[in-house]
Design a protein around this nucleic acid. Structure first.
Length: 302
DNA sequence: CCTGATCCGACCACATGCAA
DNA sequence: TTGCATGTGGTCGGATCAGG
């Protein structure tokens, strides 16, 4: 039976030494595959059944699983490649997951990238060191193809990080070679480092919920709306946001072309936007920031 | 019948408070 | 001190429903 998958801890530091191996971080949806003789079930991180969502993945594994004598439990990431950028695209995989019409064209074909093995030959191997689980994984006779393969391991984490940055991938995951497979994050054996985008931006107002600022409304230097951010707002910043609105009120936004969805929230607009530094993963296709967070919001006096 | 607005649930990330 | 559970917040597409 599947268990909640092992998750990497976020860190800005890449571990070094021979005790660690490093892999690309595939930006997609975590999927466990339980392959029994003649049947395949896919599960999400929360153990929801995703078997029918990715029939192309299920199909590949199904063919192979007919030859099995005992159940095998695989762990990996389902991704969809961005054909232009030659790297996984999280927005595309979400689009793929939510499109019932399988595929909507070949562009949204899902790929299953494997990186761990929890059970094989009917035996639970979670207690085995990662190096051994990985060796067992690559020795499985799964028909390797562009649609399903095992991710590579690298010794030099810094070099892999540099490769990732040059090509705009999401990040890397470092794994301790002697570590067992542990549910969730109760370990220090898997470490992820993610790329970060920073941009100068402007708070043109804030969303008021429960009588206090809950997020800021963001525009870029050209005045284009780029989303809302709430992560990073502490009590001091909330007070600042409120005080700024009292000093520089406006009854309508200084920016054009805001989405209609904003109109159903209570938004306090600023006469003068506050410059701020925003961190984010990337832009979505709609031109909004993905996972924005507030890095610096200056404490202005006037 | 079609269209748009709205709600919902799935994904992700982080802040916070509490417990070990 | 550290990790976990909870809550908040963002995006997106599907489902639903109201109104033309």
């Amino acid at each position: 039976m599947p268990v909640p998958p092992m998750s990497p801890l976020l860190s800005s530091h890449i571990p070094t030494g021979t005790g660690w191996t490093h892999q690309l971080k595939w930006d997609g949806v975590r999927i466990l595959a339980l392959c029994s003789p003649g049947s395949v079930q896919l599960y999400s991180k929360k153990l929801l059944n995703k078997t029918s969502i990715y029939p192309e993945v299920t199909g590949i594994l199904n063919q192979w699983s007919r030859t099995l004598q005992h159940p095998v439990l695989l762990d990996g990431e389902v991704v969809v490649m961005d054909p232009k950028m030659l790297r996984p695209s999280f927005p595309l995989v979400l689009q793929r997951e939510r499109t019932r019409a399988q595929g909507a064209g070949k562009a949204l074909q899902a790929i299953y990238v494997l990186f761990d093995l929890l059970a094989c030959n009917g035996k639970d191997v979670r207690a085995c060191p990662y190096s051994e689980r990985y060796e067992r994984l690559i020795s499985l006779p799964i028909p390797s193809s562009e649609r399903c393969f095992v991710t590579d391991c690298f010794d030099d984490g810094d070099a892999l990080w540099q490769w990732v940055n040059e090509r705009g991938w999401e990040g890397i995951v470092s794994k301790r070679l002697d570590s067992p497979y542990v549910e969730g994050k109760q370990h220090r054996d898997w470490i992820k480092k993610k790329k970060d985008m920073q941009l100068e931006s402007f708070a043109i107002g804030y969303v008021r919920k429960d009588n206090r600022p809950s997020s800021i409304v963001l525009a870029d230097s050209a005045g284009q709306y780029i989303g809302k951010a709430s992560i990073g707002l502490d009590e001091l910043r909330r007070q600042l946001l409120t005080a700024w609105a009292i000093k520089h009120p406006a009854d309508r936004p200084t920016t054009q072309g805001l989405p209609a969805s904003l109109s159903k929230e209570q938004i306090i607009w600023y006469r003068h936007p506050i410059p701020c530094l925003i961190g984010a993963l990337e832009y979505t296709d709609a031109g909004l920031l993905r996972h924005p967070r507030i890095l610096t919001l200056p404490l202005l006096n006037t």
